[in-house]
């Protein structure tokens, strides 16, 4: 058997693939964060809670309404996105003119409250949610046993990232969005409803988080703290990629997933720390992040 740095090659390939899968989650979550920060200048700390809500709504749809995974994939982001719109209209919109810190504190508080409510209602050990029958089973790749569902996650996440990037960079509505971040007053003078655009953007960012939550429901335990475990890493991803850079957060998300995956082989104890080491190094060398504009 071929060894690479003392690790059998098949094992290493497997780990790279797993890293890519985790990277897909990081990319999808950091994408939502980057969209919200890039367009609204709000650091959305409730993102983890909204990710968790996506998973819970999927579970609720199945439990109370009998709607399966495929329905959840469409309905959960819509419902949670709507909730995001409500938050934006009632609270977050009031903070645009203030320092970033206010938005951060508000969304952080909201995240804790949402998490607490779910914990009180459903406990902390989680709820079962099964992989949809169409995607259960696995492929034998020779070097590893690859669950079909994980492959699906990577593909869907990549498609979603690409679609979001296209919408923002290549469509008319995307150009309005970009313009209003540069100069909102001018865009408004052209007759575009900027506040509504902001609301919809926040809603879309939240919906992306919920979408990732539905994708995560069958493989991670659906529990109230599932978001807070991931969100810190995702923030590191956004910072490394460059705050507000959409392409940056996607590439960094996948890249860091792979770095983390390799750490799990060579020095597993450090696998939860390695991303922050990378963050520290990147911030020292490039304070604006890898893809950020200083």
């Amino acid at each position: 058997m071929d060894d690479i740095f003392g690790i059998p090659a098949p094992l290493l390939f497997g780990q790279l693939l797993l890293g890519l899968i985790n990277g897909a989650f990081y990319a999808l979550l950091s994408l939502g964060l980057a969209v919200i920060f890039g367009m609204l200048n709000v650091i959305n700390f409730a993102h983890g809670a909204q990710f968790m809500m996506g998973a819970f709504v999927a579970w609720m749809l199945l439990e109370y309404a009998g709607l399966n995974y495929w329905w959840a994939l469409i309905l959960a982001p819509l419902l949670v996105g709507l909730f995001g719109v409500l938050l934006e209209r009632t609270m977050i919109a009031r903070l645009y003119k203030l320092d970033h810190l206010y938005g951060l504190l508000l969304t952080f508080g909201l995240g804790l409250i949402i998490e607490g409510i779910f914990r009180n209602q459903y406990g902390s050990s989680g709820l079962p949610y099964r992989i949809p029958p169409q995607l259960s089973g696995a492929w034998d790749l020779g070097f590893m046993f690859m669950p079909i569902y994980r492959g699906w996650v990577v593909i869907v996440a990549a498609v979603m990232c690409l679609a979001t990037w296209l919408v923002i960079e290549k469509t008319k509505i995307g150009s309005y969005l970009r313009a209003s971040t540069e100069n909102a007053a001018l865009v408004q003078a052209f007759g575009i409803n900027v506040p509504r655009l902001m609301t919809l953007t926040y809603g879309a960012g939240v919906a992306l988080a919920a979408f990732a939550g539905v994708l995560a429901a069958p493989i991670y335990s659906v529990n109230p703290q599932m978001g807070s475990n991931l969100i810190i890493i995702v923030f590191a991803v956004v910072v490394i990629g460059g705050m507000g850079s959409i392409l940056g957060s996607v590439i960094t998300g996948f890249g860091l997933g792979i770095i983390e995956g390799l750490t799990k082989v060579f020095y597993p104890e450090a696998s939860s720390t390695v991303i922050f080491v990378v963050m520290a190094i990147v911030l020292l060398a490039r304070p604006a992040g890898l893809f950020g504009r200083a």
């Binding site: 046993f145 991670y220 335990s221 475990n229 799990k264 104890e269 696998s271 939860s272």
Partner: peptide, 21 residues
């Protein structure tokens, strides 16, 4: 054996793969 960081590990697939190997 493989030591997994606590708390904060949600994905164990990598460790499971090592166990399998």
């Amino acid at each position: 054996s493989v030591r997994t960081p606590f708390p904060g590990t949600t994905d164990f697939s990598s460790f499971l793969l090592q166990a399998q190997a």
